[in-house]
Design a protein around this nucleic acid. Structure first.
Lengths: 257, 257
DNA sequence: CGAATAGTGTCTCTTAGACACTATGTC
DNA sequence: GACATAGTGTCTAAGAGACACTATTCG
């Protein structure tokens, strides 16, 4: 921060959003179709310029609302009594390669949002062009997305996968009340694995602060009615919900015991 | 990213550094003393403007080198054959409250660096003013630091504490070779707890990919000579090195079993 | 009835933590 | 010798995962 007060290199700063949800058993991301060059017609993450007088978090919330009609739950200035369910929103990372936008020098602060399975890309100013898109093909070929949005998506998905292990954020993919089976299908979709329903049930109901039982039940899936739960007060899970194969040992197999 | 190509609100973008090390059994951060207003004479994180043609990671590395003489190990463009040991450096988060700098609208991309216990703030252009400062008093009263650097420091320390659990990054606080006892004192200093030396030894040597034994030994601490180790190939620890009390259950105690 | 989902019990294996004990250096 | 640190063995409690079993609905 030791710098002269005089001139400085001017940057554009944008807030872009990786908003994830689970639809039809698969992880999906909210994309808009670009209406202008460059990358005309390509998929892109929703987002836009940070205003001169607003915080980064505020810009992310505003862009989410403007482009998708979704209300986000971030920071202390949360106004209740408003339509639509909130989504979880947190800062992901910043991206500032000099050539990432051919038009100008722009630094993007990316945000990660987790949303329940909304009926459709919710109505909003620009919402017409926004669609839920399965992430798997996009992760396999990141260049399908405009700019460096493929890399941002990859980082967002990896963050979501990691946070499901030690935080109760999986509930952000569900509605206000949900069954253990619905929560399990969230984990299975995000991680791309099959989990044992019986061990999963014992684990999530046994982790203190994760779930709050409402005495009521729901028979949404044809079998025995399941109890409905709401998110509990925990912000960290203990013990954690570790991914089956372990957290990806990134070293030669020969080094294992 | 759907925006007109014309004008945009100009921002200054800086890269600021939270560089941590362990000295005398305590966690310390590298600070510079501000030579100009505002916050004249206060401690501040080293950093500076991102250049018009450089990546964010590059700016962080450059600022670290310019202000402290420390070479960092980040990204693919790492040039070996250079003096001094590298440090670990990773992006931490971005901070952009409208009033965080009274002079101008500035967004800071903060980086977290982990350094071994260097002899002293290494020689460099501006290194004269940089000093290792224990973090505990700064965390207790964040306003001792300029701008919002107290909050950035808090986030950096928390990131470091968390990453020690599931990554082998604690070795970044040690020299190229170290004993298990030295590594244990790193964990104790960063977490601020006492660990059982015997269980710690069995755990780190039993975690695949964490440590590579060199047949040699060292008697740096007066007792029986200890084997020297180097960092192993693992990038994630499995099983993890969990903090004693568990990962801070942030929910009412009554909810525990 | 069978099929499907919900939920419990139980067993085995691994790991965390407590701590007794041995090993090898310095003074 | 005393003392300090390094390293191993062993026990107990808890969690992960496999899977048998019961419970409750629908068609």
């Amino acid at each position: 921060m030791a710098a002269p007060e005089t001139s400085f290199p001017p940057f554009a700063v944008t807030a872009d959003l990786v908003v994830l949800t689970v639809r039809d058993g698969g992880l999906c991301v909210l994309l808009v179709s670009r209406g202008i060059e460059p990358y005309l017609g390509r998929g892109a993450l929703p987002g836009g310029f940070v205003h001169p007088d607003e915080d980064l978090d505020h810009a992310a919330r505003r862009e989410l609302r403007e482009e998708t009609g979704i209300e986000a739950d971030i920071g202390p200035d949360r106004d209740d009594d408003r339509p639509g369910p909130p989504v979880h929103l947190e800062q992901l990372a910043s991206y500032g390669a000099p050539d990432r936008d051919p038009r100008m020098r722009v630094v993007t602060v990316a945000y990660l949002g987790l949303a329940p399975n909304l009926p459709a890309p919710v109505a909003g100013s620009d919402a017409a062009a926004s669609t839920w898109t399965p992430v798997d093909p996009l992760l396999a070929d990141p260049r399908r997305l405009a700019f460096d949005h493929g890399a941002i998506l990859r980082d967002g998905v990896e963050r979501a996968r990691a946070k499901l292990e030690y935080s109760p954020l999986a509930t952000a993919f569900c509605g206000p009340e949900f069954t253990v089976g619905e929560l399990r299908r969230v984990y299975e979709a995000v991680w791309g694995v099959a989990l044992d329903p019986r061990n999963f049930h014992r684990k999530v109901t046994g982790t203190p602060g994760f779930l709050l039982g409402t005495g009521r039940t729901s028979a949404r899936d044809g079998g025995r009615p399941a109890e409905l739960f709401r998110p509990g007060p925990a912000t960290r899970l203990h013990p954690a919900m570790l991914r089956p194969t372990g957290p990806t040992p990134h070293f030669p197999k020969s080094a294992r015991r």
